[in-house]
Design a protein around this nucleic acid. Structure first.
Lengths: 140, 140
DNA sequence: TCATTTGCTTGAGTGACTCAAGGATTATTG
DNA sequence: CAATAATCCTTGAGTCACTCAAGCAAATGA
């Protein structure tokens, strides 16, 4: 379980609420991944493969080094959840795609990571809109 | 940079906003720590030492194994930011405390991690209260 | 006192991450 | 077109976070 990213003494109630949200969210994500014997990073990559993508694209989107993606994908491949195939358009590149089993596991993960759904579900439609608006404003 | 904990296709605007918030928050935390050459875990532990604490207390609070804390503290100690002293009440235990330099760095970190402060600052006092209430309700 | 529990550390092992270097292919451009 | 440069990815080395199992030392309790 990753350590929380939190300032212990928050200087306002709103900051504290933000921190709590982030903490619970992150832990729920990690827990859901662990239920399927995945690391958070593996679940993250798997979740981005609704259609095949190049390694470099993933690295750029996720803001990390390409070699990091390589290793995560190697592990996902060893688990039989993704496959790398040569890109017909560019023989340097390789496209990563979920296998049928990968689709299945990804689906299970989406079901297991119920936190965001549940949290939002506690709010009325109006409240959901308010929350969205407030978060968007806060994000600047 | 840790990969984001996010479902790519969120099923509602509110969920997407939550995801964005968590992502930006986590990245800001990581960046602030990196500016001080700290890992997020190191910044987290350092931040909890407003008064000296036992290793076990930290582990319990942070929800991880005690040996994990040991290693993080060893590194913080090597950086001169914390010191471990024997607990006068229990000779098995060791109390971790920030050094003067640790206080300084922790202060700098608090300044560098401006995300939550800034985000909340974009909202009026009323909006801050609304956000807090909505988040608390969503957290259940 | 003897056994158990508690507090911490050590060691081994996995995984995420970074950077540097290199092979292979594609794109450029003189 | 041929040489050069840029791009895509992998490998290797290294750091750190994390977990579990084992073990020492001190406290607790029968």
């Amino acid at each position: 379980m990753a350590l929380p990213n939190g300032p212990v003494p928050a200087s306002s109630e709103a900051e504290a609420a933000l921190f709590d949200l982030v903490d619970v969210y992150d832990r729920a994500y990690e827990t859901a991944a662990a239920e399927l014997s995945l690391s958070p990073a593996q679940a993250c990559v798997l979740g981005r493969l609704d259609e095949p993508r190049g390694m470099g694209v993933l690295a750029k989107e996720l803001g990390c080094d390409a070699s990091n993606i390589t290793q995560i994908v190697v592990r996902l491949e060893a688990l039989g959840l993704v496959a790398r195939e040569p890109d017909p358009r560019d023989r340097r590149a390789r496209l990563v795609a979920r296998t049928p089993r990968g689709n299945e596991v990804n689906h299970q993960f989406a079901a297991a990571f119920s936190f965001a759904r549940t949290a939002v579900g506690r709010l009325s439609p109006d409240e959901q809109d308010q929350l969205t608006a407030l978060l968007r404003k806060a994000l600047g």
